[in-house]
């Protein structure tokens, strides 16, 4: 009896300490994210510019239903999401698995080289991507020499090939970034588990799917949520490589928001409404991912 009471006291003491650990961070997020988000939400129910704001109810949200550019940009980012995130995360996992092998030569070099794309400046890499995929660029020359195509492809002028270029660019830039999360997590997995599997006679593929993937689930969940969020808020690549073209085939939601806020006659309240639709969408996807992946 006394022991359980003691235990209970200990538990609640620990819980309080736990709260003390999390509250400073939570407070900062409430001040610097949720308070401004609240302001933005309030703004999304208004119309007007600057000091001339009027309450407009759901008008901004109703407007979304007939906004073709919004629909196009939403479809674009969902296409990028469906194509790119699975490819990138699988590739990142495979690379992390290969690089976690202690007998691998040049590990440091491979690890550094694969990470570097996300550190490379956007200016130089978009310059390179645009010139590589030019009509007389490197990619067409390569494919022609390999006899894979007979006439050069105008990559950035065709809606689907332009989308493909964006997917390639995203994969190029972010695979190594995701890989280092997996690598860090693999470091935390006890090496003896792998050794036991080797003695067990499990092949490389079996070890990968039966041990690595389940063990990495918490981090896979993290990268899935972050990549989903990143893709839905995509801006850099489409802004710098295709500028949303051809004919809006690659325009992203964030780019549309940017135009509405800073290039066009400013429509912050409408931009805020779009932000909230994205927010709800990402939150919904994240919720599903948490359901599937966040089990202890």
């Amino acid at each position: 009896m006394a022991k359980t009471l003691n235990n209970l006291k200990l538990k609640s003491r620990q819980s309080i300490i736990g709260w003390a650990f999390v509250i400073p961070a939570a407070l900062l997020i409430f001040i610097f994210y949720f308070y401004p988000i609240g302001r933005a939400l309030f703004l999304s129910f208004q119309t007007g510019i600057g000091a001339n704001m009027q309450f407009a109810g759901l008008a901004n949200y109703r407007r979304l239903l007939s906004d073709n550019l919004f629909k196009t940009s939403l479809t674009n980012v969902l296409t990028f999401l469906a194509l790119q995130v699975p490819i990138m995360l699988t590739l990142a996992l495979a690379l992390a698995y290969l690089l976690n092998d202690k007998t691998l030569k040049f590990r440091g070099f491979f690890r550094t080289a694969l990470f570097l794309p996300c550190a490379t400046s956007l200016v130089s890499y978009s310059l390179i991507f645009r010139s590589m995929f030019a009509l007389d660029g490197f990619v067409n020359a390569l494919l022609t020499n390999l006899n894979l195509i007979t006439s050069p492809i105008n990559w950035l002028a065709n809606p689907w090939t332009a989308k493909l270029v964006i997917v390639l660019a995203l994969t190029w830039r972010w695979t190594g970034y995701n890989m280092i999360f997996y690598l860090a997590a693999l470091q935390n997995i006890d090496a003896s588990i792998f050794e036991a599997a080797v003695i067990d006679g499990a092949g490389a593929a079996a070890r990968f799917f039966r041990i690595v993937v389940p063990m990495l689930r918490p981090i896979i969940l993290l990268t899935a949520i972050v990549s989903t969020n990143g893709t839905l808020q995509l801006f850099d690549e489409t802004f710098n490589i295709t500028n949303g073209g051809p004919a809006n085939a690659t325009i992203s939601i964030s780019q549309y928001i940017y135009r509405l806020s800073f290039q066009y006659s400013p429509r912050f309240s409408y931009a805020a409404a779009i932000s909230f639709v994205v927010f709800i969408l990402v939150a919904f996807l994240a919720m599903i991912q948490m359901r599937v992946g966040d089990q202890r």
């Binding site: 310059l127 645009r130 010139s131 995929f133 030019a134 950035l156 002028a157």
Partner: peptide, 8 residues
């Protein structure tokens, strides 16, 4: 001729 960007 159409090119992809300002640099080209």
């Amino acid at each position: 001729v159409q090119v992809n960007d300002w640099e080209q």
